[in-house]
Nucleic acid binder design. Structure first.
Lengths: 225, 225
DNA sequence: CCATCTTTGTGCACGCGTTCACAAAGACAT
DNA sequence: ATGTCTTTGTGAACGCGTGCACAAAGATGG
């Protein structure tokens, strides 16, 4: 019986072993003192708690580049997700084959959701269509929505929405990049002050004093919309 | 001069106003007591601190569905990013127009990075090619990489990598979905125990006792790879 | 010019999560 | 069986971030 100790797992994950044990303990007592955790059993328990052992039929609405990319993404199937249908509003797309599936027309959205018992929908439409698609999905019985469109969706209580903004990660990289390069004054007169990971909110600035609201001369145009 | 108070901003964002003020204070003293914050000036200061006022040329490698979707994504330009080049290894893609740009061949990667002064690269290739592309980007001078390929990249010190796993968000939704539906026993014998947001790690279970390592009979196959 | 009102900037205290440290539990050798 | 050794599970302490509450600062009106 292959086992792992909390110590090994913690080292591999770069976390504290006590915390790891405490976290595991919330799932139940699955370890054996003096031995460790049965790998296979532990993996199963975590998978089950996370919902990875269930089959989740999902519908994808909006089969443009992004929708197609998602449909082809291998990571879904291995995590328990099954793409039950691809839906697009463009009649020219209807019937086309994407990722081995035939794209269906948006008119049939309600029927598709109902017949497949879908409770999770993915929206990859243009921003303008997202809210409308969202409303129809919710009306059809979908209770969780993953939104790739750059819009904030409004939904009734009881429906979960998660928004994916593909540029946020890029922005984080750019932030770090800025710190790497411009340690000494990039634009204004500071540059130092915020650390690059932890101590960002820890720094005790020089009690401000100068870099505050200048003579207004250094206030260029505002950020791009 | 249009202004906002920390109270208004906090209400809009759903956070505590004191924390918001404290956070702002790390950027300097940009508010006026009795009045609030000058909107335009505040936006500029935050933008500058976040690096949004700079122009970040980026290269995108791997122009498949995902790469094309990203190239067309409008959110980048408005955040200060400029797609300097699209690169693909497939000779059939070379010269094709995607998002108004001509796709260039991977052979020219080093030259492109150098000539455009690129320090941020986006990898949207298949998993198999990601590490190789990454190595070449780094060798060419790129110091930040956004990785969409399902691979963990290894890079030398000083290079930042952020991995985007498109299925993680979906998994979070599925987790919540599971709790919504299966309040009473989904598979095993528990089901209750973990709350749906905050108290997940707070629950005091019934001191375990039964649901622990059962008679082995209830240990189905392990999670899908 | 002084009084009053509004809102910032921040010291301080509280509470929560992380980590320490150890008793309990089981494996394994003798 | 008994003792030793390893590793878990968890009570308790520590430290950090959040939120409270207030003094300082500037606006505004008389």
């Amino acid at each position: 019986m292959p086992t792992v100790s909390s110590e090994e797992l913690a080292a591999a994950a770069g976390v504290n072993s006590a915390k790891l044990r405490k976290d595991f303990s919330y799932l139940g007592s699955y370890g054996t003192r003096g031995v460790g955790y049965d790998v296979e059993y532990l993996v199963y328990q975590i998978s089950r708690e996370l919902g990875l052992t269930q089959d989740w039929p999902i519908v994808m609405v909006g089969i443009g580049n992004l929708g197609a990319a998602l449909a082809n993404y291998g990571g879904f199937a291995s995590r328990g997700f099954r793409v039950a249908a691809l839906i697009d509003a463009d009649p020219a797309m209807t019937g086309k084959s994407v990722a081995g599936m035939s794209v269906q027309h948006a008119d049939d959205l309600e029927k598709i959701v109902d017949e497949n018992g879908v409770s999770i929908g993915v929206i990859a439409t243009p921003a303008g269509a997202a809210q409308q698609v969202c409303d129809r999905l919710v009306a059809a019985g979908v209770t969780s929505i993953l939104n790739f469109a750059p819009t904030v969706l409004s939904v009734p209580d009881g429906v979960d929405v998660r928004k994916v903004d593909l540029s946020i990660e890029l922005q984080i990289l750019a932030f770090h990049e800025q710190r790497k390069a411009g340690e000494g004054a990039v634009d204004g007169a500071e540059g130092a002050g915020v650390g690059v990971e932890g101590p960002a909110a820890k720094v005790t600035r020089p009690t401000a004093g100068d870099d505050r609201k200048g003579p207004d001369g250094d206030v260029p145009a505002v950020m791009p919309a």
